[in-house]
Design a protein around this nucleic acid. Structure first.
Lengths: 242, 242
DNA sequence: TGTACATCAGTGAACGCGCGTTCACTGATGTAC
DNA sequence: TGTACATCAGTGAACGCGCGTTCACTGATGTAC
């Protein structure tokens, strides 16, 4: 009964991967408790019962640890959005319903992971410069919304609305990227309005998370829903006001 | 030629007021350089050439220093908004133009004071609990927008739009407060839509300030203008799309 | 299968730093008679 | 106007803390013959 489970040459690599995961998990836990500012390499080491210097075998600096967490967070929001949209699409929801499902999923994730959300959508950590690694994951969630409008457009169920000055401002490559893979020619108005909706949505979630709605809005979920319905209508999705 | 300038009994109080101002000014400078997280009592003392312990004669703790800066920042945004609206109103601008002027002023202030803006509209400082002192100043800028819509409503130049579920969520006392002093009965739809516009605006400024529009929107000022025009239209202000 | 060597993981001590806050003290500014 | 006392501003040393990062070292895991 030879124990063949670990591939022989990889035994060390497996351990390495495991510990790397453990370090990230601990960092995530710490982030949830003390926020990005309070995140420290030493505390992670303490949590894992190892010498602080040992962490440096896995992570080259505190900044890199932050970067990993940022990428993770962006991806997690993206996954939540994609999953919600996929479920909605599978049960035959139209664009407007998919839109709402996606928005709710993003807000839900934010409420469950406030510090991770703040890490990516709140004030930048002072003295930290985000590397290129973070830019692609950053767009993941927004692209779900974009793909919903693109689908609606290609199905002919979206009437584009003129975007009053915002369209021209959106960089060409973004418009290209967003509409890429969709059967529709790029429509700058739709792209601009989708982007604006996304920005408002993140802004609203931030407002709620950062406490600016305290004693201002009672039913924050209802307010969010209403706002996102308006946003969908603004983008041109039909049936959103229902 | 007796030097009667300082009121005799107040000489010490004058010096006290002066130094308090100096401490705040230094803290503001430091905030602009290293952000809220990096703000330290010792650095302020160093900057002013005094012992770190001396600062505690004027400010009871680091948290109180933060609170003072927060109140200052809220007030400064409010003043900028009020001034811009007043100028616009005085030259006879209509509600839509006043709206745009106010929005631009807020964004302008934010771009000039990014760290102060982030202090109040970015992620909350970990471990800091905002005291009651901050809640009234926090509403100052938003109330300018609210008063513009209230004016328009009372002049009959605003047709309220139904607010699809957002209205009911806005707390009653806020609706009351916002419409107080205006000749119009409270209109929850208008209040809700104004609030939403304010939230989107802050969200958009945050997006720009925190770098999320990099390589996404080229002409951020133009994008902002377009977005705020749309927002004004949504609130029901006439002539905004012009 | 066994031995000699190379690679890597993890340790513990150390460097150098900055922080918030307290405390006993000196010296100047105010007050009461 | 002058003296005796109280108040307050500012000092400098200290407490106790945590941090990021480096470095020489031990011991285990892998590799080549």
């Amino acid at each position: 009964m030879a124990n063949t489970i670990p591939a022989p040459r990889l035994a060390r690599e497996v351990a390495r991967a495991e510990l790397t995961r453990a370090i990230l998990a601990s960092a995530r836990r710490q982030l949830a408790e003390v926020g990005a500012t309070g995140l420290s390499v030493r505390a992670v080491a303490r949590d894992l019962g190892m010498a602080s210097s040992a962490v440096y075998r896995y992570v080259s600096s505190r900044d890199q640890l932050l970067t990993l967490l940022i990428v993770e967070a962006y991806d997690a929001v993206g996954v939540a959005a994609e999953a919600a949209d996929a479920v909605a699409a599978e049960r035959g929801d139209g664009p407007a319903a998919r839109w709402m499902a996606t928005c709710r999923a993003v807000r839900g994730w934010a409420l469950e992971h406030p510090h991770e959300w703040a890490l990516v959508y709140g004030s930048p950590v002072t003295g930290y410069a985000a590397p290129q690694t973070t830019v692609e994951p950053a767009t993941r969630a927004a692209r779900v919304l974009a793909s919903i409008t693109a689908d609606a457009l290609s199905q002919g169920s979206l009437e584009p609305r003129p975007a009053v000055g915002t369209s021209a401002a959106v960089a060409d490559d973004v418009a290209a990227m967003i509409t890429a893979g969709a059967d529709t020619g790029r429509n700058p108005d739709v792209v601009a309005r989708s982007l604006l909706a996304w920005v408002c949505m993140v802004g609203l979630v931030n407002f709620e998370l950062f406490g600016h709605l305290h004693n201002v809005v009672g039913d924050t979920a209802g307010f969010f829903d209403g706002a996102m319905r308006l946003a969908a209508e603004q983008v041109g999705l039909p049936g959103a006001a229902a």
